[in-house]
């Protein structure tokens, strides 16, 4: 191809092609496992494998029975409901507290900034099993184990670092003189925040919130330790299903979750573009 400069040797070109081939193979490795479960979820047989019929594209080998199975199973319905309830409240708590804190952290006057930032981001790094064990010991004292508030608090703590990271990133492009102007014009800090700061950093807040939501929505280790039978969530239900009774209902749920993540991805991309546009204007 003519894209290569004249000084390239043949070995160099081969090298480039080998590199591209490797990259393509890695992309394939990344995406294949996600794609493979989608056709499997339409299996009409109760197996995790492709049947002969599926490979020869017989219509009878495919069915929606596992999707019906989700709807017919009250445990799955409860799990879906709980996942959204817990995710919603954990997101609210994490986003509100995280956004306000990020504004404070972004201030040049913030004392002990480095230490406090490292502390607030640490829930992202500490292994979940340690957090789960600690929360089990500590939350028991407040009767929070096996309750919705307990899980909301736990998941909010996990979501906070993501909110801080994304909001801080948006704030780095934010002109602080606007905030100071608001203050000097006589508005209180809260008013200034709501009217001046928030509209400008909204894309960062929303994507932080999305991260917090996904964190809660995907989380299973804390749920295993802290949830009672009433609080089962989708990942919890999948985990016990995979451990005990593998059937394609899990694949159907997994396929639905892939669709959810595609939506998340699209939303984030739109937010990113909007944020760039906003910053361009500011």
């Amino acid at each position: 191809m003519s894209e290569f400069p004249a000084y390239f040797t043949i070995w160099h070109k081969i090298g480039i092609y080998a590199l591209r081939f490797t990259a393509a193979a890695v992309l394939f490795f990344l995406i294949l496992p996600i794609l493979v479960i989608i056709p499997l979820s339409f299996n009409s047989q109760p197996y995790f494998t492709f049947t002969e019929g599926m490979l020869s594209f017989e219509a009878s080998a495919y069915s929606l029975r596992w999707y019906h199975a989700i709807l017919e199973n009250p445990n799955w319905i409860l799990a879906i409901k709980n996942s959204f309830i817990i995710g919603f409240f954990a997101t609210i708590v994490a986003t509100v507290l995280g956004t306000i804190a990020a504004v404070g952290l972004a201030s040049p006057d913030m004392p002990m900034k480095r230490v406090i930032t490292a502390l607030l981001l640490s829930p992202m790094i500490v292994p979940l099993i340690i957090i789960a064990a600690g929360m089990f010991f500590f939350y028991t004292r407040f009767n929070l184990v096996g309750t919705f508030p307990g899980l909301v608090i736990a998941h909010a703590a996990l979501g906070v670092p993501f909110v801080i990271v994304t909001v801080t990133a948006t704030l780095s492009g934010f002109d602080r003189s606007l905030y100071n102007a608001g203050l000097s014009l006589g508005a209180g800090p809260l008013r200034t925040f709501m009217d001046v700061v928030l509209p400008l950093i909204r894309p960062g807040v929303i994507s932080g919130g999305l991260f917090a939501f996904v964190t809660s929505f995907d989380e299973v280790v804390l749920v295993l330790f802290l949830a009672g039978p009433d609080q089962r969530t989708i990942p919890r239900q999948m985990f016990s299903g995979l451990r005990e009774q593998i059937n394609p209902t899990i694949l159907a749920v997994a396929t639905l979750l892939v669709i959810v993540s595609v939506c998340m991805l699209v939303t984030l991309e739109l937010l990113r573009r909007r944020s760039e546009r906003l910053r361009g204007v500011a």
Binding site: V93, L97, G98, I100, A101, V103, G104, L105, S107, D109, M110, P111, I116, L119, L120, S122, P123, V126, I130, I131, A133, G134, M135, F137, F138, Y139, I153, A154, A156, A157, V160, P189
Partner: peptide, 27 residues
């Protein structure tokens, strides 16, 4: 200004202290 900045971070610090650091300490 320092107090204002710290005041903004304080609620989260308290929350994370209860929800996260206290459990780790208990462990």
């Amino acid at each position: 200004r320092r107090l204002v900045a710290f005041g903004l971070v304080a609620p989260l610090l308290i929350f994370i202290g209860f929800a996260f650091f206290a459990p780790i300490t208990t462990m």
